[in-house]
Simulated scan of single mutants.
Amino acid sequence: MPSHRQVSTPSPGTAPPPLPWVVPALLGAVVGFLLLGAWSLAPNWERAFRSDQSPAAWLSGALLLALSVTALRMVGDRALPRLLGAWLALAFFVLALDEQFMLHELWKFRCHEWTDACRWSPVREAPMLAVAAVGLFTMAWLHRALLHTGTRALLWAGLAVGWLAIGVDQWPEVQARWRSLPELPALLTTLEEGLEVVAEALVLGALLRQPGSQR
């Protein structure tokens, strides 16, 4: 007689298992891309990270756009609440536009033409400071929607790395006020864009690891 293998399904009220293979594959691809970019520009490997036209900058924009599209798809899969998914899609799309068209740099270096308030450093740096603050709010909101501890850990790891990248970016402004502060290591400042990419990859990995609702 033919045997019928019974497929186990999660019991009602039990979270579906996460998708464990997604994060290693994604992080491996991202790190491989960055290493290939650095190798292709050797011996001036720093150009793979420091230029606004660098491979790292391109990858950052691509990941942000992928995050936006993924959030929309997750709403369709009932893996995220509709309002949260819409907010994530909009926020990441705006960040992708900023990465591609350097909008926050435009504000930082030209806002003095539009308002006298830009003589103050916090006004010039308002877009970056807003990303840090709104990012914390958004990650806290997303934390509640994620089903698994490991997925949440990836989310907060992404936020921590993102904050580190913002801190590296803002350090010269802080140092201008407190001149006794030390210089950051040159390697850390060079890899600022790489840190942004890793942060985005961790958050994208957290989203992709989230299973859809059982229909």
Rank of each mutant, 00 (worst) to 15 (best):
149 T>D: 14
101 F>L: 15
128 M>T: 15
8 S>W: 03
112 H>A: 15
5 R>T: 14
57 A>F: 00
188 L>I: 02
11 S>I: 01
121 S>L: 15
178 W>S: 07
41 L>G: 01
172 P>M: 12
89 A>I: 01
154 L>C: 07
119 R>T: 13
34 L>Y: 01
100 Q>W: 08
91 A>W: 13
95 L>H: 02
174 V>M: 14
146 L>W: 02
45 W>F: 08
124 R>L: 14
181 L>F: 05
9 T>R: 14
15 A>M: 02
6 Q>E: 15
159 L>A: 12
87 W>T: 15
205 G>L: 12
174 V>T: 13
161 V>C: 10
36 L>G: 08
122 P>K: 12
167 G>V: 07
177 R>F: 10
174 V>E: 03
74 M>D: 09
143 H>G: 03
52 D>V: 01
82 R>I: 01
107 W>L: 11
112 H>S: 14
151 T>F: 02
43 P>H: 02
79 A>R: 01
168 V>A: 07
204 L>K: 08
94 V>F: 11
112 H>P: 00
178 W>Q: 12
208 L>P: 12
103 L>D: 06
169 D>W: 01
183 E>R: 04
19 L>R: 15
82 R>A: 14
164 L>N: 04
193 E>T: 01
9 T>M: 13
3 S>E: 13
111 C>L: 13
36 L>S: 13
160 A>D: 04
161 V>F: 06
5 R>F: 08
25 A>I: 12
91 A>D: 06
122 P>W: 09
215 R>D: 10
52 D>N: 13
189 T>L: 03
63 L>T: 06
39 W>I: 09
43 P>D: 04
181 L>G: 05
107 W>E: 09
203 V>P: 03
134 V>R: 04
196 E>K: 14
170 Q>F: 04
11 S>A: 15
76 G>K: 12
125 E>A: 11
68 S>Y: 03
156 W>P: 07
57 A>T: 07
155 L>H: 03
162 G>F: 10
114 W>F: 14
116 D>C: 00
87 W>E: 10
123 V>K: 11
213 S>T: 05
81 P>S: 08
209 R>T: 15
164 L>D: 08
72 L>Y: 02
59 L>V: 02
